[in-house]
C-alpha cells in the first residue's frame, strides 16, 4: 500500500469519527462548535511552519510561509479564545 493510500484510509476513517462526534453536539452550542472547528482548522499552521522553516526555502517561499503562519495563528488564538469566552457565558439557573 502506498503512502497516499494509507493517508486515504486515515481520511475516510476520520470522516466517520467526525460524523459520530458532531451529531452528539447539542444544538445550543452550534455557534461555539463553529468557532472551535475554526480554531482547530488553524492546524494548517503545521503546514505553514513546514513551508517557512524548510532548510531549502527560498525568499519567496519564506515570505509566503510567513503570511500563512500569521493567518493560521490568528485563527488558532482568536478561535480558541473566542470559544472560551462564549462557553463561559453558558450558565445554569442558580449561580
Amino acid at each position: 500500500m502506498t503512502a497516499t493510500l494509507v493517508s486515504l484510509y486515515i481520511f475516510v476513517l476520520a470522516c466517520f469519527i467526525g460524523y459520530w462526534v458532531i451529531w452528539g453536539v447539542t444544538p445550543s452550542l452550534h455557534t461555539p462548535l463553529v468557532a472551535l472547528t475554526n480554531a482547530i482548522s488553524g492546524i494548517i499552521i503545521v503546514g505553514a511552519l513546514l513551508v517557512t522553516g524548510a532548510e531549502n526555502a527560498g525568499t519567496a517561499a519564506e515570505i509566503i510561509g510567513f503570511f500563512a503562519v500569521l493567518l493560521a495563528s490568528i485563527n488558532v488564538f482568536g478561535g480558541f479564545l473566542v470559544t472560551n469566552r462564549m462557553l463561559a457565558m453558558f450558565k445554569k439557573k442558580g449561580k
Binding site: 497516499t4 493517508s7 481520511f11 476520520a14 462526534v21 458532531i22 472547528t37 482548522s41 492546524i43 503546514g47
Partner: peptide
C-alpha cells in the same frame, strides 16, 4: 494534509469538514 503527507492535518480536516 495529503500534500504534506501529514496525517494530523488529514484527521483534523476530516473532523472539521464533517462538522
Amino acid at each position: 494534509g495529503f500534500t504534506l503527507k501529514n496525517e494530523l492535518l488529514i484527521i483534523v480536516g476530516a473532523l472539521v469538514g464533517f462538522s
